[in-house]
């Protein structure tokens, strides 16, 4: 069983991922903004982080950059789940340290498979 932190200001998406990933056997912590998300990540030290980009208080990119600065959390896989769909956005997401990038609207099934792949590639 893996632990996942989901950070998204959209309550529908948070709710859906909590149910979906819990049903797949993961322990899920969900937060609604970047600051709370970063605090949760530092607290939980999850196996994977699902990050929205545009959020109040702190953007997903800023959260990811903070994670990469901290050697103890630098290797936590981050999957961006965002509506920012331009090629340059995707590049920026990976440049900030993202390990995967999913564009909204999204398929929860596909997201789940990507999370499984990240977990398989990064056993902790």
């Amino acid at each position: 069983m893996s632990s996942i932190v989901v950070v998204d200001d959209d309550s529908d998406i948070r709710g859906l991922l909590e149910f979906k990933l819990s049903a797949a056997g993961h322990t899920v912590t969900a937060e609604a903004d970047g600051e709370a998300g970063l605090a949760a990540i530092m607290d939980v030290r999850p196996d994977v982080v699902v990050l929205d980009w545009m959020m109040p208080r702190m953007s997903g990119i800023e959260v990811c950059l903070e994670l990469r600065k901290d050697p103890s959390m630098a290797d936590i896989p981050v999957l961006f789940l965002t509506a920012k769909a331009q090629e340059s956005d995707v590049q920026r997401g990976f440049a900030a340290g993202g390990n995967d990038y999913v564009i909204k609207p999204f398929s929860p099934r596909e997201l789940s498979s990507r999370i499984d792949a990240l977990l398989a590639r990064n056993p902790r």
Binding site: D10, D12, L16, P105, F106, S107, P108, R109
Partner: peptide
């Protein structure tokens, strides 16, 4: 109506 625009694929 709130969920549909956020999803694609089989879940939608």
């Amino acid at each position: 109506a709130g969920l549909l625009p956020k999803l694609r694929g089989a879940d939608r």
